[in-house]
Each structure stands twice: as structure tokens, then as C-alpha cells.
Design a protein around this nucleic acid. Sequence first.
DNA 1: CTGAAAGCGCTAACAC
DNA 2: GTGTTAGCGCTTTCAG
Lengths: 342, 342
Amino acid sequence: MSTQKEVAEKAGVSFITVSRVINGLDNVKASTRERVEAAIKELNYHPNRQAQALNNGLTRTIAFVTPRMYDLPLFNNFFVMSLLSGVEMKGRETGWDLLVTTDFDLAGQFDFLRVWHQRKVDGLLFVGFQRFPEEQKRIIEERGIPCVSISDRVESPAISWVDTDNRSAAREAVERLLERGHRRFAFIGTDPERDYNPNFISRERAVTEALAERGLSRRLLISESSTPTTGVPMAQAFLAMEDRPTAVISGNDSIAFHFIAESARRGIICPRDYSIVGFDAEPAGRISVPTLATFEQPLLEMGQVAASILVEQITGTGQGKRTVEYPLRFVDGASLGQAPDR
Amino acid sequence: MSTQKEVAEKAGVSFITVSRVINGLDNVKASTRERVEAAIKELNYHPNRQAQALNNGLTRTIAFVTPRMYDLPLFNNFFVMSLLSGVEMKGRETGWDLLVTTDFDLAGQFDFLRVWHQRKVDGLLFVGFQRFPEEQKRIIEERGIPCVSISDRVESPAISWVDTDNRSAAREAVERLLERGHRRFAFIGTDPERDYNPNFISRERAVTEALAERGLSRRLLISESSTPTTGVPMAQAFLAMEDRPTAVISGNDSIAFHFIAESARRGIICPRDYSIVGFDAEPAGRISVPTLATFEQPLLEMGQVAASILVEQITGTGQGKRTVEYPLRFVDGASLGQAPDR
DNA sequence: CTGAAAGCGCTAACAC
DNA sequence: GTGTTAGCGCTTTCAG
């Protein structure tokens, strides 16, 4: 692990000249620069980021705060990992490294600001599957901690967000189901008290609203025990319903897959007996039986844009708080069919 | 962002005493300690890790080097993300942060050692879906960079590895298929030249070996164009085969899912027309139609153990290179059936 | 028990 | 163009 000093000795200059070379300052003679660069290459020298950060206050690292659900960090979640991919791409492109952390500590307390306090990162990307904690919000505002929220429209003058237009998409789902003759609806999702998910909440709200405008209503299926296979108990509750709905809108694809499988196991087949529409456009929906009607979000782009906004905020090149909303795109699938006539 | 100095002023001591308190040294009077601790709490002081690292040389951060496949980092890959979960758990438990990086830079060059050279991390966790590059291996050995490889048994006196016993599992797969009357086999995977995957390679080898011992052989299906839905073109090739195999062993579950779906679309149904066994035990295999026979690996534990070994190596509490091999556990599924009699 | 001085690797401000 | 000095926030001697 060579240092500036060693490079300087090898090149026969003072270490400050080395600093100038690696920072691309122009007040260095070409021949000197070449000697220094040769020495750098020879010693495989890399500037110590810690030391640099101590001076200029920039670690050039951002944190991606992964939400938890079912008390586990969501590393196997399509939605979260797609966002992470986008963030990583933008980071690699612009020279920012990525620290992945969770929104809670060993004791289950929120402590995602720790990495900023310790100066391990310059800013935070927060994926909002937890209600944004008030105390942390206050600290962020007070200290001006650069922070961007994805999918939760945090109410704060300091916190930018990137989100999708769930409302329009959910209304479109209702529309398409109505067109096919469906009149009895259900929405399936997680318990907002236990597993807050702003996407589920806004989707459910829009569904309810759109139906109400037509004098219709929806049944609500919320799993009591939240597990990765949440769709299973929901299907059981669904099958037990009197006057069972024929149209199901699912908070996301993942739940829908389990729902469909469990229903099928018990003889209730999609789309023969009911139709279902999901959200996320997981690739699995293209090969599932039936293929899944769903809505696609530009997750990669959302991750990239969130990272850009965050970096702008860190470097002070941004124009304060920004909010970005993306439209969703309907993806058709065999799971959306005519209402069974009975 | 308060500093030691500010805490010291507030507590009416010198900053060195603050340092002692936060490092838990015992040569501080109890009453002084209390005053300092009160000041720390009041100012919400967190030690600057950069500055600490500059002194003791420890960032308390490790890197998780995500492999790429199909030229994308594998953030949506069940195998890799399960390992990451394990690593994160162990890290959170022991106070190490996690930097997630990829094994290649913008130009497609290997540069995963950069984060170590820049002193952003103290060690590296490498998931071996690339042939471990010789130059990097040399540098790791020369400089004593702490490094643990997962799933690739890197040949180096310096690099510990954690892997599974793919050989036994692959032999078991053959065994189970033979028991059910299958005699014509195929192995499906990616092109090792293009998308090196040590798991696929060892599984394929063991299958070939086990069959050879019985005077049988296997057809090999390698997709030309590697995409996330690699199983699709493979199914097409499979269907076009003369004297089509009835037993398929897939490099992993993900490929198997696409394979099954594409075959079904063209009228060749599993398990009626052929049986298939995968690897990884992805949750999707429990709800797919048919459910997938596969092998389960203790991925979470593997991630945890790899992290432990790495941290031991960094802190010098380990005993040099270590190698750990885990057994795989067979998970039955409807995709494994009797050979069709014809 | 507590403090003063030196230094980790680097950069910014000011000489020469 | 190039070097010197000071200092980022902290820890590690060594004194008192």
C-alpha cells in the first residue's frame, strides 16, 4: 500500500506534486507529470480515500438503505434489487461507491443515519417500506443530510423523492377488469400497520376510489401472518369467501404468484374462475401459468435518477428538493380474462 | 457533525479523554466518563470512522463483489442475493459495514481490488462467477489482501473458499433419475467460456462421470446467446432433438423454470414427457407447475461463514487459509417422475 | 487518572 | 512550476 510520499521519492519530487498530478491540476510540467505517473504505475499507487475524505469532507460513497419486510432485509425482492441495480449503474458511471445497509440495527431500532454520522457515506438512498421515522426526518432536516426517498413521498422540505404514478395504474386495472364484465373485486396486500408499503397503500386507495365512483366496492384481503409466501393464506381466505370476487388486484406480482398457485391447488383456476392483475412486471410473470397481467415500472431508471439527484444534492449542484413521478405501463397476461358468467 | 473536540469542551476535559471513553479504555474516572457520555449523547456525537481508519488502518467495512452475467451485475439472482443476506446478517451482528461492488469497471476490466487499494474496505468477498483473474490473484498474494471466495475453489495459498458439494448432489440427481427408469439424459447450462460458473461446471462433470460409470452418456445443451431467460432457447433445442432425452439436469432452477415453461408452450409437458432436476431450491419452485425437484444449499449460512472467515483474516484472529464445503439437500418435486415408456 | 505532542495520508493556502 | 506549512479527526506514545 504505497503512499504519496513513496511515489514522490521514486519520482524525485515532493509529495505535493504527486497530489497535483492525481488531482489533475494543470500547474505541473509535462515531464514531471510523466515521471510521477510512471512512479504511480510502478508502485500501483492508489490515493487513500480516507485521507482525502478527511480533507475535503467527501467519501464518494452513498448508502442504499434496504428496507426490511418479514423482519428480513429485502435482498431477494425484485423491486428493491432492480432499484439497486440502477443505483449501482449510475454509481459506477459517476465514480461513487455503494454501501448497502438496512434501515434497522440489531436491536430493531432505526439507525440508518449511523453510516452518515460516522462519515462512511455522504448521503442516503432510502427505499420506503417503512414509515419514515419522524426523529430521523428531523435530524436530516437539521443537519442537511442529503437523502432521497424511493417510493415513499416523504413529507419534508429536505427530502427528494422518486415514485411511480400508482394511482393511474390502479385505476386502469379497475377499468380493464370492468370492461371484461367483472363486478366483484378484491384487493390483496399486506397489513399497512405491520408492513407499511406506500405502493400497496396508494394502489389500494385508488382501486377503492375508482370502484366507489361506479357504486362498487372491494373486499380487502390482508394476511395476518406476513411471510414471503403471503399469497398463500390469502388464497385460502379468498376461497372461503361467500359470493367470491371474480376480480383480484394484487399489491404486487410476488403475492399474486403464490395466490394463483394456492388457489389452483384447491381447484379454483385463474382465469377460468377469477382474473388477477399484479404490479411490478417480474420476469417470472412471463413464464408463469397463466402469464400475469401486471404493470411495469422503470425501476432501473428510477434507481439511476434517484442516485443522480442524491449526488447532485451532495455536491451542491442540484436545485434543492426534487420530486419525480414515473408512469406505469400495462403488461397484458392470460391472468386477465372475462368474468365467469354465473 | 460534532467532533471529539466539541464533546471535550462541553464535558470540560481534553479531547483525548473523549477518545478513551469511546474506545472503552478503563483508565478514566467514572465521574469523568459519565460527563463525557452525557456530552456525547447531547451532541449526538459519532466518531469519524475515516479519521479512525487513518490511524489504526481499519475501515471496518468489507466488500461484497457481485459477479456479472449477461453483462449485468447479478442483483436479481437468488443465489447471489441469498449469500449477500447472510453476509449482511453477520456484518450487522459484528459491526462491519458492507460495500457492494461489481467485479468489473466501466470499461469491462477487472478492478474489484480498487476499493481495497483506496482503503475503502479491509477485505473482499468474491462470488466466483468469473474465472478468478491471475493478475488479481497475484496481487492478493503479494499484498496479503484478505479475500474469501464463494463457490469458486480458487487455487491459491492465500484465498479461503466456501463451497458446496456439487459433486455428490449431481450424482444423487443421476441416481434418482435412473431409479425412475430414465436412460437418456441431458444437462443444460451456460457456456463456460462465455459465462463461467463453477457450480455448473462441477455439476455437469459429476453428471457425466456418474453416467459414464454405467455406460451411459448425456447430451449437453448450452445456450448460444446468454440472457436471463436462457432456458427458452434451450427448450427449443431440446424439442428439436432426435431421440429426445427424458431426463434433464439443469445448472440451476432459474434456467429450469424457463425451460419447463417454453417446452410446455410447445406441447412437451413435464413430468409427462420428461423429468427435470434443478439446483438452488428457489422458493418459486414450490409454487411452480409442476413443483421443481432440486437441491437446497445453506446459502445464508455460507454467506455468514464467509464473512466470519474474512473478518478473522482481517483482524488476524484466523489460522490462515480455510476451506469449507457444505452438503446439498435433495428437495423433491413433481418435476421428477417416471420415465415415459416408449 | 489526565493531558501534550506526534503522526496517519492527504489537500489547501501560501511561499519561492 | 514546485515546495513548505498547517490541519482534517482521531489514536498512540510518553509525561505528569
